[in-house]
Nucleic acid binder design. Sequence first.
RNA 1: CGGGGCGUGGUGUAACGGUAGCACGAGCGCUUUGGGAGCGUUUAGCCCGAGUUCGAUUCUCGGCGCCCCGACCA
Length: 573
Amino acid sequence: MRQSKLFGKTSKTISKELKAISHKYLYQGGFIRESTAGRYYFLPLGIKVRDNIAKIIEEEMNKAGAQKMITPTLHPLELWKETNRTDTAGFELMTLEDRRGSSFALGGTAEEMIVDLVRGYNISYKDLPFHIYQFSSKFRDELRARGGLLRVREFVMKDGYSFHASEECFKKEYQTMWDTYTRIFERLGMKSYAVEADNGYIGGDYCHEFVVESDAGESVFFVSEDEKYVAHEDVAKFKRGEINPEDKILDFEIIEQPEWVKTMEDAQKHYNLPAARFLKNVVYKNRITEDIIIATIRGDLEINKTKLEQVLDMVGALEDAKEKDLASIGTKTGYVHSWGHKNCLYVGDLSLRTVKNFIGGQKEEKTDSINVNYGRDFEHKITADIAMAKNGFSTEDGKQKLQEKKGIEVGNIFQLGKHYSSKMKATFVNANGENQEYYMGCYGIGLDRNVATVVEKHHDEKGIIWPPQLAPYQVHLIGIPGKDGSAQKEIDEFYQELQKKGIEVLYDDRDINPGGKFADADLIGCPFRVVISPKTIEQGKVEFKERSLNESKMIDKESLFEVLSKYINKNEF
RNA sequence: CGGGGCGUGGUGUAACGGUAGCACGAGCGCUUUGGGAGCGUUUAGCCCGAGUUCGAUUCUCGGCGCCCCGACCA
C-alpha cells in the first residue's frame, strides 16, 4: 500500500480530552475516527487490525469445533420478552419499530435469537452437542461510553452458543472454551486471567471473565499468590479473621453517649477501639419492589452491592437509599439500627460472627449499646457473604494473600444451564423419546475492545508496537529518494519485490521530509521498518529496524527476506 | 441518571458586547531532503434556538453534542 494513497491520515495534534493511551494512538495513527460518543469508524488501518484479530479468533473457534453463522441484527422484541430481558437488560437494550409497528431490539447479545432458531428444528440427542457462533455488530445503549474503544455503544463481538444434552457434556465444552480463549489472547499477545465472575443479567450460575491486566481497565479482581484462585471483586471470597478471640463475652448494655459522638470516626475516638469493633448498617432500596434492605456488616468492611443482590435474588435492582427511604422506615442518616426497624429486610455479613462485644446498633441521640453479640442479642434471617474483598486479605482457607488487580475484560464464558431453554420452552428429544430442556453455554469476545487492549499493552512513548500477527502491515518501507531523486527507482522496485514475496508492506512514498516519515512509522507501529536511501544503496544494503528495538542495522536484501520470512512464518501459526 | 468541565476552520487552540487571531493540516510556487524543514501565497471556523441589546461568537435561558468523576455495566 502506498501511504500517499492511504485513506486516513496521521495527526500531529490531539485533543487533551483523550485520556486512554489506546484512544490517543489509535486516533492519531489514523486507525479510528469517532462518529458520536461510543461509535467509531474503523479506517483502513484499523479494520486491518480488527480483521487480523477476527481471523485468529475464527481459527481457534473452528479448531474447537464451533461453526460460524450469522443472525439478523434486528431481533423481534417478543423474544426478549419471553426471557424477561426487556426488563433486566432494558436500560441498555435499544429498540425500534418498523412501519407496521412491529417492535425490534437492536441485537446486544443473541441468546434468544439462537435459541429461537434452534428450537425451530426438532433437535434430537443425536444432534447434540453443537456450538454455533457469529461475528456481528452489537448495540448497547451504554449510560456512559469511555476510553475510545474500551467501552463503546456499538461494536463487533464474536458470540458463541453451545447446546448440550447434559451438564457433564457442557462442562467439557466449558473447559474447551477456557483453553481456546486462553490461547486466543496469547496469540493476540496478551496474558489473560480467567476470572471467576458474576453472571449479571445474562443468567446462569457461573461464568469467567478473561481479563488482561491494565490500569485503563474497569474490572477489579483478586488473585491468590499461586494464581490458582482468581475472582472478580463481585464474587471474591476471603477469610474474615477473628477480631478479638481472647475477649470474654460481656453483658449487653445501653449506656450514655456524649453528644459530640455522631459519626463512626467520632465513636472510634470516643471508645478508642478500631473500626472492626463497630456495627455498620448500609441501606438500599429495590427500585422495582420498593423494598428497603438494611445490610449489616463489621465496621472495617464495605458492602459489595452485587453480592448482596445475588443473595437476595435482586440482580440489578438495588440502589442506594435516599433520605426519604430512610424516613419510610422511621429513621434518618446516622441512626439506622442493626435491628428493630419494621418494613424492611435485614441481611448480615459473615463478619458479624468474628467479633465479640460489638459497639453500636442502638444509635439513639444520646445512648449507645455496647457488648452486642451477634446470635445472642440480635441475628438476621440471612447471614451471607456480602462484603467487598480488599488488597491483602487472606484467601478463604487463610493460607495465601489476595492481591488486587485491575484489568480490561476482553472476553467471557458463561454457563447458562437450562435458563434459556426453560424460559423459552426449547427442548430436544432424548433417547427415550421424551422432551428434555437442553443445557447451554455462551462465549463472547469483543473485538473492538481487544484492539484497544492490545495497544494498551504494546506501545511506547512514540506510538504503537503491533505484534506481527496483528499489524496492519508487516513492513513499513520508508523511501528517501535523495536530493536528486536518484534513489526513487530503486525504492519503487524494492516495494514491488516485497509485494511479490507476499509481504504486507506499507510504502511511505509521500513527498515529505524523512523526519515525518520516521515519526509516522513509530506511531503506526508496523513491526518492521525498512529504509532505502542513497546512503543504503551506496552500501548495497537496506536499513532494517524492529519497532520494538532501538537500534537499526544495515543488512543486505537476502538476509532481510530471510529474517522477515522467519518472523512471518512464525506468526502464521 | 447525579456532580463537574467544555462546545471557535479538517485538527489543536486564542481573544473579544462592535473587523475572530495563531499553529498544524490541505492547495500552489520556490528552496530543502536521515528524526515532524524554510519563505511566500491560497483555503477554511464561532453547535442549534430563544431572550437581553443599537449590535451577541461573547451575557441569560433552553436544547443538542462532547469529556471527566460517580452510579451503572456480557
